[in-house]
């Protein structure tokens, strides 16, 4: 079955959506991500949508859901890399992407996540090393 790979980077989970998702794939991503947050005790989720040419109400709802679910699981979500045309269309469509933070690119998104997490618990030591582990075994396109 098709799956979107989820990468683990220290305290964060990283997802790059590189194809236009059909519904089943998007719903799978939603459940996979929530499961991964639970399994890895991740504090942040970063979703890169720079390759998405459109975000319709369904996709918008999925992104919002991921944000809400992750928050309940004590993780913050940031959506990065939205194309300008997509942002214009989203607002005109009437979607506000509530529940998720947004940032211009991956670097800014990571900064935002670090900031958010530092706000929450300042006592913890900072883990600067970034290890990339493909935690999803059957992550094929």
């Amino acid at each position: 079955m098709d799956r979107i790979p989820i990468l683990r980077m220290g305290n964060f989970l990283l997802v790059t959506i590189q194809i236009d998702l059909y519904d089943r794939l998007a719903i799978n991503l939603e459940t996979d991500l929530v499961n991964m947050v639970n399994k890895t005790q991740a504090k942040g989720v970063l979703i890169d949508i720079s390759a998405l040419s459109i975000v319709d109400s369904f996709m918008g709802r999925i992104l919002g859901n991921i944000g809400d679910m992750a928050r309940i699981m004590d993780a913050e979500t940031v959506v990065v890399g939205m194309q300008p045309a997509v942002a214009i269309t989203l607002v005109e469509l009437g979607l506000e992407l509530k529940g998720v933070h947004t940032a211009l690119n991956v670097v800014k998104g990571m900064e935002l996540l670090r900031l958010k997490i530092k706000d929450l618990d300042t006592g913890e030591e900072e883990d600067e090393e970034e290890e990339e582990i493909a935690t999803n075994e059957d992550s094929t396109d």
Partner: peptide
């Protein structure tokens, strides 16, 4: 284009 395709998708 994006507006049209998004509307079509809906």
């Amino acid at each position: 284009q994006t507006k049209l395709i998004t509307a079509a998708s809906e």
